[in-house]
């Protein structure tokens, strides 16, 4: 299926009831060179809006919020040694974590690509 987006600049890609979460190209551009990523531990339960991961550049640290509720099933281990993947491939190899959804209904609150593009455009 196509990706969904949040106002916190995360993307969500759904495969069955497992969602892959990353940050958007816009977000990585705003952050600059990513130097560190902390992904959640497998098995961690998160509610929509909870802090789930941390992404850091040299001068900034941002929380990545859980866009949906559920259980973390995998963190992207590659980011520990190569955080620059977030800059190089935000939409693909730079994914943060995968989670098993507990409430698929929450998906309806998210933006589709066109709505997100419009949202970013408004930010200028």
């Amino acid at each position: 299926m196509s990706k969904k987006f949040t106002k916190d600049h995360e993307w969500i890609s759904l495969d069955g009831d497992v969602a892959t979460v990353g940050i958007t190209n816009y977000a990585q551009e705003q952050l600059g060179d990513v130097v560190f990523v902390e992904v959640p531990e497998t098995g961690q339960q998160v509610a929509q809006g909870d802090d789930a991961a941390v992404v850091e550049s040299v001068k900034a640290a941002s929380e990545v919020y859980a866009p949906l509720s559920g259980e973390v099933v995998e963190g992207n281990a590659a980011l520990e040694a190569t955080p620059e993947l977030v800059n190089q491939s935000p939409d693909n190899e730079g994914w943060f974590f995968k989670m098993k959804l507990s409430d698929a209904g929450e998906l309806d609150e998210l933006m589709d690509e066109a709505a997100y593009d419009a949202f970013v455009k408004e930010l200028g």
Binding site: F36, E56, S57, V58, K59, A60, A61
Partner: peptide, 12 residues
């Protein structure tokens, strides 16, 4: 590793 520090992370 300044992102640990108060001038960036503030209350965290």
């Amino acid at each position: 590793l300044s992102t640990r520090e108060q001038h960036i992370r503030r209350d965290k």
